[in-house]
Design a protein around this nucleic acid. Structure first.
Lengths: 260, 260
DNA sequence: CGGGACTTTGAGCTTTCTCAACGATGGTGG
DNA sequence: CCACCATCGTTGAGAAAGCTCAAAGTCCCG
């Protein structure tokens, strides 16, 4: 399997590119994810250990097996997390976007410094904050709300992971694609309060078909055929390869949650 | 698919069967898992909210979708966690044994009371401690070490879950079975310090072939054939259906981590 | 010793994968 | 501004892994 991970000349574009004021208050991600949990004062303290970083599309910023030195908080863009086998087979374990917290998963007695058990790459241009892992963990007892938030983040990821195991172990290709489309819609917060939208739903998929295949445990051809069938059946429209419209979310959901 | 979950007349055998002294100090699980994290005094406080429960083989004690009322700590026996689709397809997301902490995974803003997103059943006779979820969460701030422990537990489960996604999404049936056998050996702590044993390794599998199949995302026939092939190839021996001997752990590991 | 549940084995079938060719798309340089 | 090229995506045909259905073999327990 040659050329599994097409790289777009990885370059660290802009290290430590703080917002103009240098304060979290001016950050676009101030009111989402981890940063939403903290008071301005707390954030001020943490900010000292943070660096703002911009990543080019395709750039890897966490490598499986390397020492876990940082936590990350994504401000914008989309990231793929994955594990790989020695022969190149890849399983994408998740996509993350603005507000998501990254870097909990390390080997050993966990929250202690160990080694990353996954790799992470930017899908498109990504802006994120990088925290020194040891420093943040040491300060954790000073920020009880943050510690609780981390637990919430971990538990939420666990819930998602279980759902994905069900998908990978027991769903057909068509069900997997339908499930993904709905999950992605929810993930984009296009579906308020987790409710299923009645109307049609417009969304863009930043990831390639290869990413989708490696996320859903099938091949790119199978992804393409499944999308084609959903299109033929009138459940979705695909005006462009990376642009999908959910025409009939309810029928899609029926398909996703198990052909009864 | 009829009769997916053979039930052995679920009966709550023995509620609140405290050890004779009524103290955690006399519990067989005192020095493992969560209970190992706490001081005797802390444990004393928590014990007030705990009930000791014995479950019969096959008994379900957590049902997906039901309100999350308790945490559990397993003292002995083996438990299967699973998710199911409306048409009966089942994915076992993990097996848990003595010392394991259970019940983090709930819907919604997580660590808050919500609904379980998985079901749990005893595989053999199981003894566990049941904690009131709300009470324990409320007391969490009094037990910072416990809170940190919960984070560690969640992170460790996440690491396992990612590994399982790689298995379900990208490994062949033979690789899955080989991976499972090694993981089970490590899980049983037959392999000290995560190192791969050179010598042969004796272990019992409390779960049925059906459980194995639903854990590894294949059918029971495929499990049987894969075990048969490993036996034919001299990698394992199967003196009884629920008793496996790893004859060549290294070759098994080579097979598990990817046929290169 | 007999019955039921579990496991193994076999044969044919279905879904998905593999391999290959074609088509679309977007960026680049003439 | 357009043609070209690289990459990505789609489509088709044949192959293979794993599934389904069926039957025989084991084992446990009464």
């Amino acid at each position: 399997m040659p050329d599994i991970y097409p790289q777009y000349h990885p370059v660290l574009i802009n290290l430590a590119n703080r917002p103009k004021s240098g304060k979290c208050a001016d950050c676009g991600a101030r009111h989402i994810g981890m940063c939403d949990t903290l008071s301005d004062d707390d954030l001020e303290l943490l900010a000292n250990t943070a660096q703002r970083i911009t990543l080019a599309p395709g750039q890897m910023f966490i490598e499986e097996g390397s020492p876990a030195g940082h936590f990350y908080n994504i401000n914008s863009g989309t990231v793929r997390l994955y594990k790989a086998l020695p022969d190149g087979r890849r399983q994408i374990t998740g996509f993350m976007g603005a507000g998501h917290f990254l870097g909990l998963k390390v080997s050993g007695s966990s929250a202690m410094p160990g080694h990353y058990v996954f790799s992470a790459e930017a899908i498109n241009e990504v802006q994120l904050c990088r925290f020194n892992r040891t420093a943040l963990l040491a300060k954790l007892s000073q920020f009880p709300r943050l510690e609780r938030k981390l637990l919430d983040v971990a538990v939420h990821e666990l819930v998602i992971a279980q759902e994905q195991m069900l998908l990978l172990g027991r769903k057909t290709a068509l069900e997997r694609v339908a499930s993904f489309l709905l999950a992605w819609a929810a993930w984009q917060e296009l579906c308020p309060a987790g409710g299923l939208p009645e109307t049609m739903l417009n969304m863009s998929l930043p990831m390639s078909r290869m990413d989708l295949a490696d996320y859903l445990g099938v091949t790119i051809e199978t992804i393409s055929r499944a999308l084609g069938q959903l299109k033929r059946d009138g459940l979705i429209a695909i005006p462009a390869a990376q642009h999908v419209i959910l025409l009939q979310p309810r029928r899609l959901a029926a398909l996703a949650d198990a052909a009864i």
